[in-house]
Design a protein around this nucleic acid. Structure first.
Lengths: 249, 249
DNA sequence: AAAAAATATGTAAAATCGTGCACAAAACCG
DNA sequence: CGGTTTTGTGCACGATTTTACATATTTTTT
């Protein structure tokens, strides 16, 4: 196990759970506690997390990147992407957010499908131009170093002129009462604008992010139309959402 | 086993697994670890992956494209890029076109240099966000499938609001009498708009494209301020340009 | 205050790295 | 074609890094 892998694993855990225990990680990664301790020290020095007695917590000043989680739950993401693609109709207009799950969607889009896609995400745009029948419009703006997406006023303004059939929202935390939440204020603004564009708001998320919340609110659950996860349809974690009228896949 | 084969194998492994162990590869390819180490070093220098202790991990900034192997005249491009970078001043505003030479510029930009860069090129934007001190603004629009850049009216309109110190123009054909030419009408429109933004127009081109012309005219030689090539300063192919007042590097 | 947990520090073994060098293969050149 | 240069590869060796364990110290909990 490379140090880099451990670091990514730890950061991902911190990002999802907001805190980690040193002993847990040592066990999960099958390395000594000393090694984990050193890892946490290094990540602490780089400002990626805040080391505390017994483990570490999220650093409130650090924006957690969307690429640190690219290795994890990859199987699930493929599954989610596959389900989500089935919602799309030929000739439709789609707005895609960032995140690795949406990247998977972009990769798995069938070649024959004709679509017009608006996206502020660099990796997703890169992936989309491989498809001949997809017209990709990159919604430009100032690029965020970590998230690899365009942010800021210009980007949001551009979205306000778009009318789309679907909006595929990627990463973010989803809670039945709090709704969709984010840790980065600028991303919140962008997501709000994207949701506005679309008739159908589709949230793609792995179960880990369900029933957890971040600092800022993007929208209530009622504004979401479809929820796509890797879970079974009758999983108890989903009942609250389907009760609120969401179409759960 | 050719080096090229090993490189491909390694990159493919990285792409699939997101990480590789040096010892594994040495075994799988039946070569010494030293050789693999050197391979990883080279791939690291080219920005294709990130070398770490014990192996390598995927470089999240690298775009794994299909037309990967434009390594043609790669040495020259590095040389040109290095020269061109010396023109830049800290705190400046730069407009970058597409092309592999500009991609090289983006890759080789020194970490300490503070810049604001406007570009319509996806791969270049992808490369630029790796630099902490560079603010990248992607000028969005409809993406061209083959050129991997944004084209069309919106893109051009956005550039009309930009005032830059430099404009780095990449690929294109340059002739002493015809000036800068292109074969794609839409690219011509875009390049014109980009030239308009900048006080200094810098053309980066390998010698092969000098004294050849395409169908459409972008601008006369007189609108170009600096010409950067891999050639010696006193090469006969350049005299015509320096005679017309171009600063030749 | 004592017990438990977590941390800091030192050390030794193992893995990995960098460098110089020899040798072979390939490319170059007259 | 033969000789030279260049390039790539493997090996040896010392230097460095990484890791796990042992032990002492600090912090937290009871």
């Amino acid at each position: 196990m490379l140090r880099e892998e451990r670091h990514r694993y730890i950061l991902n855990e911190v990002k999802i759970r907001n805190r980690v225990l040193l002993t847990d990680i040592a066990q999960q990664l099958a390395v000594s506690e000393d090694t984990v301790r050193r890892d946490l020290q290094q990540l602490n020095e780089r400002g990626k997390l805040k080391k505390v007695h017994g483990g570490a917590v999220a650093n409130s000043f650090h924006v957690y990147t969307y690429r640190e989680d690219q290795i994890y739950a990859h199987e699930h993401k493929i599954e989610i992407a596959t389900k989500a693609i089935q919602l799309l109709k030929d000739g439709g207009v789609l707005v895609m957010g960032g995140g690795t799950t949406n990247l998977e969607v972009a990769r798995l889009l069938p070649e024959h499908l004709h679509l017009t896609v608006f996206t502020p995400s660099l990796p997703i745009a890169m992936q989309l131009i491989a498809h001949e029948n997809i017209e990709t419009i990159f919604v430009g703006g100032r690029l965020s170093h970590d998230a690899q997406i365009a942010l800021g006023g210009e980007t949001i303004k551009t979205f306000s002129h778009v009318k789309a059939d679907y909006c595929f929202m990627g990463t973010g935390n989803l809670d039945a009462t709090q709704g969709l939440t984010e840790f980065d204020w600028e991303v919140v603004q962008l997501k709000k604008a994207m949701i506005e564009t679309a008739q159908q708001v589709v949230v793609l998320t792995i179960s880990e992010k369900i029933n957890s919340a971040q600092r800022f609110n993007v929208c209530p659950v009622t504004e979401i139309h479809v929820l796509v996860t890797e879970l079974d349809l009758y999983d108890p974690r989903l009942t609250e959402f389907s009760a609120k009228g969401l179409n759960v896949l």
